[in-house]
Design a protein around this nucleic acid. Sequence first.
RNA 1: CGGACCAUAGCGCAGUUUGGUAGCGCACUUGACUGGGGGUCAAGGGGUCGCGGGUUCAAAUCCCGCUGGUCCGACCA
Length: 589
Amino acid sequence: MLRMSTLFLRTLREDPVDAEVPSHRLLQRAGYIRRVAPGIFTWLPLGWRTYRNVENVIRTEMDAAGFQEMHFPALLPREPYERTNRWSEYGDTLFRLQDRRKGDYLLGPTHEELFTLAVKSEFSSYKDLPISLYQIQTKYRDEARPRAGILRGREFVMKDSYSFDIDDEGLANSYRQHRDAYIRTFDRLGLDYVIVSAMSGAMGGSRSEEFLARSEVGEDTFVECPACGYAANTEAVTTLAPAEYNRALGEPHIEETPETSTIEALVSYAQDALPRPDRAWQASDTLKNVVLLVTDPDGASRPLVIGVPGDRAIDEKRLEAALAPATVSAFTDEDFEQYPVLVPGYIGPQVLGKDSESGIEYLVDPRVVAGSAWVTGANEPGRHVFDLVMGRDFRADAVIEAAEVRQGDPCPVCGQPLAIERGIEIGHIFQLGRKYAEALGLQVLDENGELVTVTMGSYGIGVSRAVAAIAEQSHDETGLCWPVAVAPADVHVVVMGKNPDVLAAAEELCEQAEAEGVRVLVDDRTGVSAGVKFNDAELLGIPTILVVGRGLKDGVVELRDRASGDAEDVPVSEILARLLDRSAVVRTD
RNA sequence: CGGACCAUAGCGCAGUUUGGUAGCGCACUUGACUGGGGGUCAAGGGGUCGCGGGUUCAAAUCCCGCUGGUCCGACCA
């Protein structure tokens, strides 16, 4: 039994000044966590109980799915990460340190290498596979800017699983098992989440989905189709090629368009000087060609031009995701000097493409379909070309998803307008493929006695982040409101006044409840006013609040639902049954 | 990595402009009253004013340097 009179807890009446998002603010005010250094937090007793409940839900579901828990060190040698290139690729985000002999070590940001090596050292036959292993581990990432409390810390706990299969079919199966286990886990945690298509990004691999807890403070943006249920991270949204597009009125013709190096100026000029017969010119009639400098992982860089409808901006995240692992930067004046064919403000696709004279790679937005006509640069200052038709008058090397996604864009599945939402990434599942197995030489003998490289999946849940995500989704103005599955106790008993008979009656009730498996936190403090106790109870957010006080002489106590605020008087004789009904009694923490 | 700002009691802040006994609210201790919504009164404890140097009779305050931190953006399985 937790007693407020002895609990290591101090609630704060005022908000900590550094806390911006509700979860961070309330977890600190309620005495669940305290900051130690930027992005590094201590869990105080109530917070730790909550954290462990979350961890236990995750662990039970992983075990139930047949995944085996093990545990790696957080402090790791450099060598395995050197072999997969991540010692350098991870960059400044990697926490590095040296031992007394100047040997390089790191604090693990994720453990693909170690799991791969572990399987390699133990198993060597297809008969041993498939297998899925996991750990619940403290991870370290030296984030450039930790923020939002434990939503994004530099030290955090992650449950990371890895599956090992002999072939793609096996991997797909392991992936499905993890996906199902994650659904059960997040359902039990009471989270409101969506599963979105994601890019596998720097991790490599093919299929990837993210579990996002809906939250306006989330750092991930995703689109969702209210009509058909399609959902995707903005990085992974695919653009529907339009069924209708501008048709050419004739052959391409170059027009004088002075001082029109921006789309806005061009549209305005064309409207005045070269009006369309049927309707006004729009930015979406123009083809904007953006030059970027692409740098490959080996350090080589080259120009790249991307053509998008003039009303669209390039979304850097989508661009980076589309080009990964290469990175992009702006094309500078010096770069332009090296490529005189590129006339800033008047770049047109006629001179672009790998097969063209310039050899500059040219990629286009999916809206630039074959047969569509555009107004675009004529590759000379002050001139644009009209009625330039994709496929007829110019070609692209490929299609790229890099344009911004907007509210109301058509769903790639059903065509209905998409909504844009924000979420907190609480889980991510990947079909990694053979990247790590190849780099580290994880092979087994197949049934024909041939060596084959194992294919892997990688699956993560942010355990500490999930605590914050739950807090983010379940709180109100007065404090936290935990779902019963993760709450630090089942019932918060508020003992009113200082009448020893009332206290004794409350104590007895608490003892009986505990004996039945109900986890009780009792506010047995004397000399604390009713207001303080009620406010603390609401701040702490235990789902059921039981007020033992003046009703006792009539044989009733007051039962309150923290979330709704609903209260009712319940006869003492019935209270145990009611509490059991509202408790997460079957629990192993 | 850009931009803005901050550092004074456990927390939140004033004091710095114009140098002169280090303050307020909350929290904490003691006592009394109160006792179903952060109650009242009284008496207390708690500070290398981030660090180092300088100017001055005198520095939280002015000057120089450093360190740490926060927020916005960039970045970020």
